[in-house]
């Protein structure tokens, strides 16, 4: 136990980086996810195809491969970002594919009559999506989005592969010095569990508040 207290500064710093990664890539993934969903349900075939291609590409590549590929591959063609920014962008882009799928299932759960009514009122596609469809769709997918957010938290542990010192990487470094893997990894595991539990709690509250009685 004392090994955790002795190295609290390093581990705390790692936890902060993990939280930064989580928040920043969640925001990115949410924005991108909504855009991709809009593309996938839009009336323009090209956009639909692009949306599908996006989802299929990023759902079918392992995140670790993407991270390493972008970090080491893009500098070969002159695009070089700092490790933290690279990690945030890659995790956001990857997670957006899953978010988009969850959102699309929400859109599909909104009855067709709603879209037709919106059209009949003279709303454009953008307006009907923004004012009628998405608000209802989002409410039905609070739980899956919460789960995806928890998955995103766990994904940030891979950022260590491209030299970002997040909680997992910090724990590895402490362990290298102290050789007490069980205390150190159980300790950092509990920190992840606490973040996940917090997200789960918020999701539960949101869902109860937003649920649509049908």
């Amino acid at each position: 136990m004392s090994v955790l207290l002795d190295h609290l500064p390093e581990l705390w710093q790692g936890l902060l980086v993990t939280l930064q990664l989580t928040v920043a890539s969640f925001v990115g993934a949410a924005v991108l996810g909504v855009l991709v969903t809009a593309m996938r349900v839009s009336p323009v075939p090209v956009l639909r195809a692009l949306g599908t291609a996006y989802v299929e590409t990023f759902q079918n590549l392992p995140l670790l491969v993407l991270l390493v590929l972008v970090f080491f591959g893009l500098p070969e063609i002159g695009i070089k970002g700092p490790p933290m920014a690279t990690a945030i962008v890659v995790i956001a882009v990857y997670q957006a594919a899953y978010m988009a799928e969850a959102l699309r299932s929400g859109v599909n759960s909104v009855s067709k009559g709603q879209a037709e009514a919106a059209r009949a009122l003279g709303l454009t596609f953008g307006q009907s999506l923004r004012l009628v469809i998405l608000p209802q769709a989002l409410r039905t997918v609070v739980q899956p989005l919460g789960n995806l957010t928890i998955q995103l938290i766990m994904s940030t542990a891979l950022a260590g592969a491209i030299s970002v010192v997040d909680l997992t990487e910090a724990a590895k470094r402490v362990n290298l010095q102290e050789a007490q893997p069980i205390a150190i990894f159980v300790g950092s595991g509990l920190a992840y569990a606490a973040i996940a539990a917090a997200v789960g709690y918020v999701t539960g509250r949101l869902e109860r508040r937003l649920v649509i009685m049908r």
Partner: peptide, 14 residues
């Protein structure tokens, strides 16, 4: 196609 692309990129960087 996408995975082939990935492989090609791997081999060129590594």
């Amino acid at each position: 196609a996408v995975s082939l692309l990935g492989l090609a990129a791997c081999s060129s960087t590594g």
